[in-house]
Design a binder for these strands. Structure first.
Length: 511
RNA sequence: GGUCGAUUCGUCUAGCGGUUAGGACACUGCCCUUUCACGGCAGUAACACGGGUUCGAUUCCCGUAUCGAUCACCA
């Protein structure tokens, strides 16, 4: 039987980065096993629906390179893949459970439920829940005469369908990551399966859809582990236990520091993104930053996420998606939560950025130049990308590093000027400038280097002594990338101009 | 509080009875370099605690502590 997994997010807002990791693990497993990856939209809570969220999810998955084989988007044999469009299916299964005496109708109001819980708490009951014991004191089809039940339903009184959870029963499941997990049915209450609005709760919809869609492996977050036994019970009651999917509950992503799971607040505090893509809240207009907009490459994001909770057992750190697929293994997923460390993400970005083709980076440089009113021709942008991509972590830093190339000498670094601009420096710059004037070869880094060293030899000046002054004269700064390459990019005419300007402007310190 | 789960350097982790406890990020130093980075090399740094089991426990078992998840007509 071929593997079928699904990613089933709720369109209640932007996809959390932890959700992206869950999707990634599903995807890696599907590809590794030669199976299918499905996308199902779990929009059964009409109160929390957020416009645009579904598109966001699909765009985010596409951005990181997760391809959906079947489901919302590409479609497939089990369409529709939006749960809100499948309500009749859940309804039918809920009715079946009722007919088989495995579920019942309940008419209790929110106030009555509150009162029941309060009463139980005050009585110090082990658990304040709607279960095999307490249900006999509530208003439902097990306690009310059938005629009364029918009358209430005919009158349009709101009701829910609850699972008739057994009183004493061990429910076991073999989690692929955690091993055998046993829960006593007394810890599971009579969960609502069908809400009064006619839509199913997660539990019912999830189990029904996973069965119908022939899901073989349910790979989801650890927050679902406590309700997994309930799902096993549901498969059993629905008569699907023999084809029940296998479960794998993933460890959570934790705060960078302190206690608790990673939240939006941590991202705001730490100044890093927590969503794959930028998201503008449709109601408040508040913008949340995204990995993509912050300059993280999708390859780096994937690599970073993949290693948060899983590793191949080797010392390899850098993985392409194909390599991840080849080495991925559910058994090597960790059990404990992983702290989210953005510094590692930055490092991965550096690793991938340096491998980016110059042609990809050049437009980014040009765009940033344009933003500050500088015209950067393509040939120049290509050279800048080549010169600087190994030095920075983000593409956006490229132009920041390159700014000395477009520098217009107005003010020079005072400290460098005061310490390095001396008689030798003036002599060196003058000599070099004259040599350059006489030079008629191609203005390339190697050639420039020769011109400079010849000139310094001729002037009897040790090159190392005046290099910083030379840099100061050319870029106004004491630091920066390779000066010969910088000059090549600046161009001969501009180099000559800047050297002349430096000689005119910079004053020798008063001796 | 009940239930379930987890616990190796600051962080991500390797380890699955005998290891100088390995790697990566971060940090520090050195080298490279005209400078800053990059890169290279090196260094600091960990088995939560207490009992067992065993010739021997980081590794197996039981407690304790701590952390996490969950206990809705939300997913």
């Amino acid at each position: 039987m071929s593997v079928r997994v699904r990613f089933a997010p709720s369109p209640t807002g932007p996809l959390h980065i932890g959700g992206v990791r869950t999707a990634l693990y599903n995807y890696l497993f599907a590809r590794k096993m030669g199976g299918k990856m499905l996308l199902r939209i779990e929009d059964t809570d009409q109160n929390r629906f957020v416009p645009g969220a579904e598109d966001y999810i699909r765009e985010a998955l596409a951005w990181v390179g997760i391809e959906i084989d079947e489901g919302q988007g590409p479609g497939g044999p089990h369409a529709p893949y939006r749960q809100s469009e499948r309500r009749d299916i859940y309804r039918a299964e809920a009715d079946r459970l009722i007919a088989e005496d495995k579920a019942y109708y309940a008419f209790d109001t929110a106030e009555e439920l509150d009162a029941m819980r309060k009463r139980l708490e005050e009585a110090n009951a082990p658990a304040a829940q709607y279960n095999a014991i307490t249900r006999m004191q509530m208003k439902n089809s097990l306690t009310l005469p059938p005629t009364d039940v029918k009358a209430r339903m005919d009158a349009g009184e709101p009701y829910v369908i609850r699972l008739k959870t057994p009183r004493k029963e061990e429910v076991r499941l073999n989690d692929l990551i955690r091993g055998w997990v046993t829960v006593h049915s007394s810890a599971i209450d009579d969960k609502v399966l069908l809400k009064s609005d006619g839509l199913p709760t997660y539990h019912l919809a999830n189990v029904v859809d996973d069965h119908i869609m022939e899901i073989t492996h349910v790979i989801r977050g650890e927050e679902w582990l406590p309700s997994a036994p309930l799902h096993v019970l549901l498969y059993r009651y629905l008569g699907w236990e023999s084809t029940m999917p296998q479960f794998a509950h993933l460890p959570l992503l934790l705060k960078p520091e302190g206690n608790g799971k990673l939240s939006k607040r941590d991202a705001d505090l730490g100044g890093f993104p927590i969503f794959p893509l930028q998201w503008t809240d449709p109601f408040s207009g508040v913008v949340a930053r995204g990995f993509r907009e912050d300059g993280y490459l999708p390859e780096a994001t994937v690599n970073f996420l993949a290693l948060l909770g899983w590793n191949p057992g080797t010392e390899q750190e850098l993985f392409t998606m194909d390599e991840l697929i080849a080495t991925f293994d559910l058994e090597r997923i960790h059990k404990a939560g992983a702290r989210f460390d953005i510094q590692k993400a930055t490092w991965f970005n550096h690793q991938y950025l340096r491998e980016q083709p110059d042609a990809v980076l050049a437009p980014i440089v040009q765009q940033q130049a344009t933003e500050v009113g500088i015209d950067c021709p393509t040939d120049k942008a290509l050279k800048i990308a080549a010169l600087l991509k190994g030095r920075v972590n983000f593409a956006r830093e490229l132009f920041g590093e390159a700014k000395t190339i477009f520098y217009t000498p107005t003010d020079y670094d005072e400290t460098i000027a005061a310490t390095k601009w001396n008689a030798d420096a003036v002599n060196a710059v003058t000599t070099f400038r004259n040599s350059l004037l006489a030079f008629d070869g191609e203005f390339m880094a190697d050639a420039i280097k020769h011109v400079l060293s010849d000139a310094m030899q001729q002037a009897g000046i040790k090159q190392g002594k005046i290099m910083q002054a030379m840099r100061l004269a050319l870029t106004g700064s004491g630091v920066g990338p390779d000066l010969m390459l910088t000059m090549e990019i600046i161009g001969k005419a501009e180099v000559l101009k800047r050297l002349g300007q430096a000689l005119d402007t910079l004053k020798l310190p008063v001796a």
